[in-house]
């Protein structure tokens, strides 16, 4: 069965017809040629496909496109503003927070979403005070980014990149 939907992707309205079995990830990649979200597992286990869906990070392989008619999707590519990489992207460059780069767009979207969660005071498993503001120390960063696997093992540099962000 097909359905007609509209998505706002990286600031542009895109209308498309999708099979109701099509995931949000495949809609982006196969239908709209938006390929910065990657498919590392298709099962919600690696985080490569992470995008910001109405501002919150989601693994786009684990949700159907048809369920998101009218939604706003930001991918790593959409984080670039007027040719300028997002501060998190710049920090990844600065700290060499990647190697092959395949997990990277997902890591970056996840990090951007995570920083917002911290700002909003969402606690994580390692937060001591569940009611107060969150201090983004290394342990918090590591915990909150553990849904994004990196087989190249760039974690130490990713945490360094976000430490910079947390400090600024």
């Amino acid at each position: 069965m097909d359905a007609r939907i509209t998505l706002r992707v990286d600031g542009r309205d895109r209308s498309l017809t999708v099979d109701t079995r099509t995931t949000l990830l495949d809609a982006l990649r196969d239908h709209l040629s938006v390929t910065s979200p990657k498919k590392g597992c298709d099962h919600g286990q690696c985080g490569s496909c992470t995008v910001l869906l109405d501002g919150r990070r989601v693994v786009s392989c684990l949700t159907f496109a048809v369920a998101h008619d009218g939604a706003d999707v930001t991918t790593a590519e959409g984080l670039v503003q007027e040719g300028e990489p997002h501060p998190v992207q710049r920090a990844f460059l600065e700290e060499d927070g990647f190697q092959c780069g395949f997990c990277t767009p997902g890591q970056i979207c996840s990090a951007v979403g995570m920083l917002e969660e911290v700002k909003a005071g969402h606690p994580s498993r390692v937060t001591d005070d569940l009611t107060g503001p969150v201090t983004l120390d290394d342990e918090e960063i590591r915990e909150r980014l553990s849904g994004n696997l990196c087989r190249c093992g760039a974690y130490v540099n990713i945490v360094a990149a976000l430490r910079e962000e947390a400090d600024s």
Binding site: T35, E77, V80, G101, T104
Partner: peptide, 17 residues
């Protein structure tokens, strides 16, 4: 810095698929 760094962090690097 990596010559392919910008393409990788912005997601414009096109892998096989």
């Amino acid at each position: 810095p990596r010559v392919d760094g910008r393409a990788k962090v912005t997601g414009s690097a096109a892998y096989a698929y």
